[in-house]
């Protein structure tokens, strides 16, 4: 097992048309305070754009947030896009207003973890650290 040489790189993105970004901006700030390199996409991105940026920027993690209810379709397109670009090693995380019954299906199609509204920032930071570490070791 090798020690990672670079800080964890994260793209935080808002796919679709949902404009609520209080939650994702909090996560951006918390990850940055935890020493990660974080890019925030801003709002109104197509899933394809986020996949493209994630690949271009060579990130370890792509975190997306949706509160409009359109999370299933948008997250599926992102997961499919990452697979098509052979970039499934990028850890795909989702957050926002997501009913618990949707989570199993989301994990099935390629979302690694879902953090619903109300999730603790400390938990998100810890999850990313250990998951990225585990991937590097794999």
């Amino acid at each position: 097992m090798t020690e990672r040489q670079r800080p964890i790189r994260v793209l935080m993105g808002k796919p679709g048309l949902c404009g609520h970004d209080r939650g994702i901006v909090l996560v951006v700030m918390a990850l940055r305070d935890a020493g990660m390199e974080v890019i925030y996409s801003g709002r109104h991105n197509s899933p394809e754009t986020l996949v493209e940026v994630a690949v271009q920027e060579d990130v370890d993690v792509l975190g997306v947030s949706v509160l409009s209810g359109a999370h299933m379709g948008l997250c599926r397109r992102i997961a499919d896009g990452l697979r098509e670009r052979n970039a499934s090693d990028i850890l795909l995380l989702a957050g926002g207003f997501i009913p618990p019954e949707d989570i199993p299906a989301m994990k099935q199609f390629g979302v690694h973890e879902v953090f619903r509204d109300g999730a603790r920032l400390d938990d998100i930071v810890a999850f990313i650290r250990s998951a990225v570490q585990a991937r590097a070791a794999a």
Partner: peptide, 18 residues
């Protein structure tokens, strides 16, 4: 709905699922 609020028609590619 959000497409309406953003001035997009229902068949706009960005409107899918919304």
């Amino acid at each position: 709905d959000l497409p309406t609020q953003l001035g997009l028609d229902p068949d706009d590619p960005m409107a899918v699922g919304e």
